[in-house]
Amino acid sequence: MKALVLPASGAPGFAAEVSRLAGTDVQACYACGKCSAGCPVSASMDYQPHQIIRLVQLDQKDEVLSASAFWLCASCVTCSVRCPREVKLAQVMDALREISRRSGVAAGQPRIAAFYGSFLDLVRSGGRLHELGMTAMYKLRSRDLFGDIDLGVKLMLRGKLKLIPGRIKGRHHVAGIFRRVREHEAGEGGKR
């Protein structure tokens, strides 16, 4: 866990951008730390959840986006439920991952970013997730080639990994959704 040193300046507008995308007001946080106390993965985070919120409040975009904390967030939503100030922290963590991806900065947890990317690529091409295909793509991207091979064999033997991806008729519609969302994001990026 890092000590939080309050800086002099930041990236003006970052806190507002995060609040808008997350649909919650990060400035409402008074840093009680209840989110961090109940977070199941906080022990593995560099900054604690309430520290991430404080950095966001202070527009510390670079420091926040280089952190691993929001990538490790397991989206369990315990923090949001317990926050006495009704800050939706889980949605803030989502917003930070989205801003990180769209800014093109290196992810603080490259494997997790590779997992999400592999998952979505498979959905874009087939309309549904093909678990085996997703796992193969993830392993190539993350270079985690040999982890869980034994587990994969066990699942295969139990018929739990479909070999052939099932493709739905609407896969072109699903691919179109991806295309339109990405086009919209590219347009927004140009306006910034």
């Binding site: 917003a95 979505l120 969302v181």
Partner: peptide, 11 residues
């Protein structure tokens, strides 16, 4: 799933 909400609200 998580892959979408963790990376793009609109998607």
């Amino acid at each position: 799933s998580s892959a979408a909400h963790a990376t793009s609200h609109r998607l």
